[in-house]
């Protein structure tokens, strides 16, 4: 009974803060309302005894929102701390899409005849999760991670306007690089 109440409360929090993302008029509040929503979802996952996924959801989302706040503010053309602004664009289509997606997922969750559980969960869910991801799928992981890493590096190289010739001179022979801000290693 208690767990039903807590779960419903968390669901309400997740939904309400999700709605708040579009109702508040400040970048920072929208970002952290989204974080609250995700934290509530993470705690709900914890209630399913999915410890690792729940905790890691909270960790990733809070960190992501902290970083996102920087980017959102960095790319805004004005001082968004002070400027009340609308958080929605293209209202009609996004509303249609959002409601449609919600109905589809909620209808699916309610209408699908879920199978009854056979067997019992593993004693250590974290370990079995790890084996499920890493065991038989190791080859996929080994392929995906270098590609992801290479993508990140390539994107950075493309985005960075300053190459090593800008830093070290045309002959690459400056004793110290010419940087707008000196780093800690002098390289």
């Amino acid at each position: 009974m208690l767990s039903v109440i807590v779960f419903s409360a968390l669901a309400v929090i997740a939904l309400a803060s999700g709605i708040a993302v579009f109702r508040v008029d400040s970048m920072a509040r929208a970002t952290y309302a989204l974080a609250v929503s995700f934290v509530a979802v993470g705690v709900m996952l914890l209630m399913f005894d999915l410890d690792y996924i729940g905790v890691i959801t909270i960790l990733m989302m809070v960190m992501e929102m902290a970083i996102m706040a920087i980017y959102m503010i960095m790319f805004m053309g004005m001082n968004p701390a002070l400027m009340p602004m609308s958080m929605v664009h293209n209202k009609r289509w996004s509303a249609i899409l959002a409601v449609g997606t919600f109905l589809l997922l909620a209808g699916g969750a309610l209408l699908i005849p879920w199978a009854a559980r056979t067997g019992s969960p593993a004693a250590d869910l974290t370990a079995s999760l790890g084996e499920a991801i890493m065991g038989s799928k190791m080859l996929v992981m080994l392929t995906v991670s270098p590609i992801l890493f290479a993508t990140i590096v390539a994107a950075l190289v493309l985005a960075n306007p300053r190459g090593r010739y800008d830093r070290w001179g045309d002959e690459l022979n400056r004793p110290t690089p010419d940087d707008p801000q000196q780093g800690g290693l002098g390289r």
Partner: peptide, 19 residues
């Protein structure tokens, strides 16, 4: 079972809070 990750999660909250 994920106490170590719990600790880590809490210190990530510090990012958000200090900001």
């Amino acid at each position: 079972p994920v106490g170590v990750v719990w600790f880590n999660t809490m210190d990530v909250f510090v990012w958000a809070l200090v900001w």
